[in-house]
């Protein structure tokens, strides 16, 4: 483990959100956690994979469930200066979701291999 000053003050944190919205609170918890973490000036990234990619569908309308709309909440990430947002390509492919169906313009679609190296660059992984 490195102990230089930089690694103490600014850590690279990757939030991995792998669960669909609404069915459980995990997706919402991931979002709350990364927004809260943004107050501490760390290097934050967010990765959607597996059923987590369903959080990005722009057609979401949970008004009948009386739950908050993910499609409405996710654009707020830009206001919190969370700009490293990734989506797992193979997860989209397996679910036949195209990039046009997603809510975030700024998301980077990356494949398994790239995720593998993304993970190795982090100081801390947070799984949701």
């Amino acid at each position: 483990m490195t102990t230089n000053n930089k690694s103490i003050t600014c850590k690279k944190l990757l939030f991995i959100s792998r669960h669909a919205p609404y069915g459980t609170s995990l997706a919402k918890e991931a979002l709350d956690a990364i927004l809260a973490a943004s107050a501490y000036d760390q290097n934050l990234s967010l990765l959607f994979m597996d059923d987590g990619v369903f959080q990005l569908l722009s057609a979401q309308d949970p008004s009948d469930l009386e739950q908050k709309n993910f499609a409405a909440m996710l654009p707020v990430l830009a206001l919190y200066e969370i700009e490293n947002i990734y989506v797992h390509f193979e997860s989209l492919q397996a679910r036949q979701i195209t990039i046009n169906e997603l809510i975030l313009d700024g998301v980077q679609v990356i494949d398994s291999k790239t995720i593998c190296s993304l993970l190795t660059q982090q100081d801390q992984l947070l799984s949701f």
Binding site: M1, R18, L119, Q122, D123, Q124, L125, S127
Partner: peptide, 8 residues
């Protein structure tokens, strides 16, 4: 290991 990723 540098990091732990829990798959659940």
């Amino acid at each position: 290991h540098r990091c732990v990723q829990s798959w659940y």
